[in-house]
Amino acid sequence: MDYDKIHDVDYSKLDDTALAALVARRDERALGALYDRYSRLAFSLAVRVVGDRALAEEITADAFVSVWRASSSYSEERGRFVSWLMSVVRHRAIDELRRLNVRPEGTAVELNEALQTAAHPDGLDDIVDVRRRQEVVRSVLAGLPAPQRQALELAYFGGLTQQEIAAKTGTPLGTIKTRMRLGLLKMREELRRFDDELH
């Protein structure tokens, strides 16, 4: 891509990889486009972890600033941009959660609410892909046995270790390990199937 001739391009039509590359070249409009595309997802994850909208907005902002600062460390080989972004948001949110010493009760995702598709910007392949992937993840999670789903949610959204989950739920540690492993492997299997169908 000839980056020097991109000034007239509609950034909202560029794919994530191109935008991330432009961010690495300190293109503020590219970050703005990624923000417009994914801030809602990032904010929703932050809300899910910390349970506070104001704090989640702060986390969302910090995450995008982190993306800006660390953009040179991202490459497509690392996986999808949105996966990287979610990782940044999640770690920032868990960090905040621990700072506040607040542990969420790990309530299960409200599936009826979760299955309602969020409004998204206009259709790019990445957006459509993320939206469909979102449905797959939610569907798989909903289809897992409740104990497996609980183990994954307490680890991912609550930032708890396996030992902490075992203590919190009064379940043997070995059982938690098994549930977590089976749950995540099931998730991988379904996402692989999704990717195979997609490509």
Binding site: R40, L41, F43, S44, L45, V47, R48, R53, A56, G79, S83, W84, M86, S87, V89, R90, V109, E110, E113, A114, Q116, T117, A118, V130, R133, Q134, V137, R138, L141, L152, E153, Y156, F157, M187, L191
Partner: peptide, 11 residues
Amino acid sequence: NSLGLAAADSG
């Protein structure tokens, strides 16, 4: 990381 996509929409 994809588990983050399961978070309910918060607007």
